[in-house]
Every structure is written in structure tokens, then in C-alpha cells.
């Protein structure tokens, strides 16, 4: 399964203290994202990654602990329509 983020011009992100407000142009919906969601979108990019590769990519840049249930966060982004899985 490859997970992909929308193209950069599909999102309008405004960091507001506790979260990042993201306007998603194709849907017209606003999403309120907290760590590590914006980081996940950034790492996935348009070409997409598998879950294992995403974990590796994030581990290079951030301190990931077992408690960060990456698969669950990813499924939330899929359900919100911000990440497509195929």
C-alpha cells in the first residue's frame, strides 16, 4: 500500500499556536492538524511512501517513539481525505 499526500497547491496551511489549520482546496474542508500530521504529509509527498518507508523517513528527522502510533495517524489522514491509499 502506497500512501500519498495531495499536491502542495491543494493545501493552504496556517499555523495557529496549538495546531495548524489546513484548508484543503479540492474538498473545501478545513482540517486542524497537530503533530505529527503535518510532518507525515510533508514526508509522504506527491509520490507517496509505504508505511515502513514513512516510518524510516520520519525517524531521520524526528524522535519517533513506539507510542507514536504512526499507522493510526495515517489512517486518520486517509479517513479525512488528506492522504490517499492505493
Amino acid at each position: 500500500m502506497i500512501y500519498r499526500a495531495p499536491p502542495a497547491d491543494a493545501l493552504l496551511a496556517e499555523p495557529i499556536d496549538a495546531f495548524t489549520a489546513v484548508y484543503h482546496r479540492p474538498s473545501g474542508q478545513t482540517h486542524l492538524l497537530v503533530e505529527p500530521a503535518p510532518e507525515i504529509l510533508d514526508a509522504l509527498g506527491r509520490d507517496g511512501l509505504t508505511l515502513a518507508k514513512l516510518r524510516a523517513a520520519l525517524a531521520e528527522r524526528y524522535d519517533l517513539t513506539e507510542a507514536d502510533d504512526l499507522a493510526e495517524r495515517l489512517e486518520e489522514l486517509v479517513a479525512a481525505g488528506l492522504v490517499s491509499a492505493a
Binding site: 479540492p26 474538498s27 473545501g28 474542508q29 481525505g81 490517499s84 491509499a85 492505493a86
Partner: peptide
């Protein structure tokens, strides 16, 4: 324009689930 965007997105979300 807004109605069109919402409708097309809903179709896309159904497609993702049913693909």
C-alpha cells in the same frame, strides 16, 4: 462553484472507499 467542489469531492471519497 462550491456545490460542484463538494459534489466532486464526495464522489472521489466514495471512489476511494469502493475502488
Amino acid at each position: 462553484v462550491q456545490a460542484r467542489r463538494t459534489a466532486l469531492w464526495e464522489a472521489e471519497m466514495a471512489r476511494r472507499v469502493l475502488a
